[in-house]
Design a binder for these strands. Structure first.
Lengths: 214, 214
DNA sequence: GTTGGTTGCCTGACAAAGTTATATACGCTG
DNA sequence: CAGCGTATATAACTTTGTCAGGCAACCAAC
């Protein structure tokens, strides 16, 4: 059966690939973005440097895989913190997002703050949203808030705005650690509370139907 | 007169240093962050690669100088857009900040999104705020809004929150250009309007006196 | 069972990067 | 004029990503 053999091969290949992603993850976490080199990566899994190129087109490709993995991990962490209260569930998204970023600053920088001008081959714009499980769960929890009457407006627009503020908060705390933000946790909580209070007071229109005048 | 001689030397040194910063600025703008190399920098000012090390300790030091320069440029651009209406003046800060970031994405990335774990030698935390003219003008314009009764709370806290949201907006637009934000300008305006409306509805406490419970 | 092609992995090499060590040349000091 | 220090240049070292090519094992077919 040639299919079975091919399947087994593909599986092995997928396994080694995810093993490489895992090693890259640890490498970034331990030594930072600049610690992630092809040679170190290969040594960690016991292969020659050039063998990495059998699984990834180039270094950018590794970074994309790392980003994908990080989004999945983040989504998993978020879903470990559910709540019956839709607002609390939404707050948990922000809290976990911040905890993820502040707990793994190196990886956060690598994944969320490095050039994404090139899309991985065969990916479209929509894939970015569809294939991003963390964004999906955020939108879902916003929808729950809208359904419960706690928020009003377009869920994707609200989710995007929350993402914007969350990202701004985390990345500033990471990039300018010496700026007197006060306690990082407290600043995250402040921004989260502020956003939830402010969003609940407005009707948020969709991102596409913004008034063009002015 | 040894003093005069020494002064002239210092001046020449400062001039070449700023010439190098200028060249670095152009290099980043033209070729992006990875286009900024010591060798290219030296070639651009007509010196040998190693001569750069007479003016900067290492590459990080160049990036710090570049950041300082960018902050000054940004502050200048903001102050070219004054207004009698304090809220409009504040809005101009956000607009110019966004225009700066979206117009020079390479430099924005280099200055605002790269590792700042190490402070330049002889700088303290306070210098970061004192020596940042862009932050200073932002705080001043927030103070004007507070004085006019348009905003309420601690000016530095309000300014920091505005910076957070502005940075989040710009960096997401830069890092994930394929995400369907809609028109970038419109998204910037949306976030700006949202923040000004939301801030005016609340009394913002200082960053240090956040409630510790919960 | 032997043969040929495909695949996976490795060795070696190259260019470009930051940085260190060493040499040279200019200008001030005595 | 002699000496010295600073500024600049040259060469070399290390590490990086990546290309070219080689070896060995496996699969298919005669």
């Amino acid at each position: 059966m040639p299919l079975s053999v091919q399947r087994r091969r593909e599986k092995q290949k997928a396994e080694l690939r995810s093993e490489l992603v895992d090693a890259a993850h640890k490498l970034v976490q331990e030594e930072g973005y600049e610690g992630l080199t092809i040679r170190k990566l290969a040594k960690r899994v016991g292969y020659a440097p050039m063998s990495v190129y059998s699984y990834f087109a180039d270094k950018q490709d590794i970074l994309f895989a790392l980003a994908e993995d990080a989004f999945e991990t983040l989504a998993r962490r978020i879903e470990e913190h559910p709540s019956d209260d839709p607002v609390e569930a939404l707050r948990a998204v922000m809290t976990e997002y911040a905890a993820f970023g502040l707990g793994n600053p190196n990886e956060y920088r690598t994944v969320f703050m490095t050039e994404k001008t090139r899309l991985p081959e065969g990916r479209s714009y929509e894939d970015m949203e569809e294939g991003n499980p963390a964004m999906k769960v955020l939108i879902r929890r916003v929808e729950a808030c809208v359904a419960a009457g706690k928020l009003k407006g377009d869920p994707r627009a609200i989710a995007t705005m929350l993402w914007t503020v969350g990202h701004g908060t985390i990345s500033l705390l990471i990039t300018f650690p010496f700026y007197p933000f006060g306690d990082p946790q407290a600043y995250v909580k402040r921004m989260c509370d502020f956003m939830l209070a402010s969003l609940s007071a407005q009707d948020i229109p969709s991102l596409t139907e913004t008034p063009l005048h002015c």
